[in-house]
């Protein structure tokens, strides 16, 4: 009985997603342009790294190929999260327009409904280019092909995706209390991506401690990259930290779920 209910719920979500994909793909030119521009956006971030290394041979102790590996892990993790839950940053609009009221009275999970309302198929472009960048970076950095490294190369982007998804959801929750919060969530989502794209040695003082350890962004790409590059942390952290990203991702997801539930419980309609 319960199994049948679960299967039919899954079927509903499947149909909702399929409808979204169909509707987006029907504006063909626009869809292709969207796909392409998402690739270009990643290109812009990549260009920044390349231009910086055009000026200097080494950045805070890391070469271009080392930095590209950190960048690749971070951007693949981020783009997967962006594909899965990136559209949650429209929360404010949902709260302001009252769409959330409609969602709340339907017999499906609130978060899942919001996520399938606007599936970002166009963001597939960014995921694909993320995979390519990471593959090239692994090749250039001459990462030794061992089972452990291969496992790490799969686990790290996935853990990064879960971590960034948690950040997306937790920061979008702000809209429950603060309707007009504008680009606030971008500070930690896109800001977090930019932060994790470079080796932690770039940053200094309290800022590094707060973001790398306090908020956990250091585990998204930097520590796993150190294991892949087989080099010790210039800042003196033990190398097993690189394997901790799944634990951290799980903790982040749990916290995000908690924040989200608190937010939904405190939700009061704007009345519009």
């Amino acid at each position: 009985m319960a199994e049948g209910a679960a299967a039919s719920t899954a079927a509903i979500y499947r149909r909702l997603v399929a409808a979204q994909v169909r509707s987006q793909a029907s504006y063909r030119a626009s869809f292709v342009l969207d796909l392409l521009s998402n690739v270009v956006f990643l290109g812009a971030d990549l260009l920044t790294v390349l231009v910086v290394f055009h000026r200097v041979p080494v950045l805070a102790g890391f070469s271009l190929t080392d930095t590209l590996l950190v960048f690749g892990l971070s951007s693949l993790g981020f783009s997967l999260a962006d594909l899965a839950v990136g559209n949650i940053d429209r929360m404010q609009r949902h709260v302001r327009t009252g769409l959330l009221d409609a969602v709340l009275i339907r017999p499906l999970g609130v978060l899942w409904q919001l996520l399938v309302l606007d599936v970002g198929v166009r963001r597939l472009g960014r995921v694909c280019s993320g995979v390519v960048v990471l593959a090239v970076a692994v090749r250039l950095a001459e990462v030794p092909v061992t089972p452990a490294n291969l496992l790490l190369l799969v686990v790290t982007p996935l853990a990064g995706a879960v971590f960034f998804s948690a950040v997306f959801v937790a920061t979008a929750t702000v809209a429950f209390w603060w309707v007009d919060s504008g680009e606030l969530s971008a500070a930690l989502t896109y800001g977090g991506r930019d932060f994790t794209s470079y080796p932690m040695t770039v940053y200094g003082g309290w800022f590094r401690h707060l973001l790398a350890f306090g908020l956990g962004f250091g585990f998204v790409a930097y520590y796993p990259a150190l294991i892949l590059l087989d080099r010790p942390d210039p800042l003196g952290a033990p190398s097993w930290l690189g394997w901790c990203s799944p634990v951290l991702a799980a903790v982040a997801a749990a916290l995000a779920a908690l924040v989200w539930r608190t937010g939904v419980r405190h939700y009061r309609s704007t009345g519009s």
Binding site: V52, R55, V56, L59, A60, W178, V179, D180, S181, G182, E183, L184, A186, A187, L188, G191, D194, F195, Y198, T201, V202, Y203, G204, F207
Partner: peptide, 24 residues
Amino acid sequence: QATVAATITNTMFGFVRTYVMLAV
């Protein structure tokens, strides 16, 4: 609210970009 939010975001990016530029 939007002004405050945007300012906070600009500040966060300011820190990240400053450290990268200082490393350069």
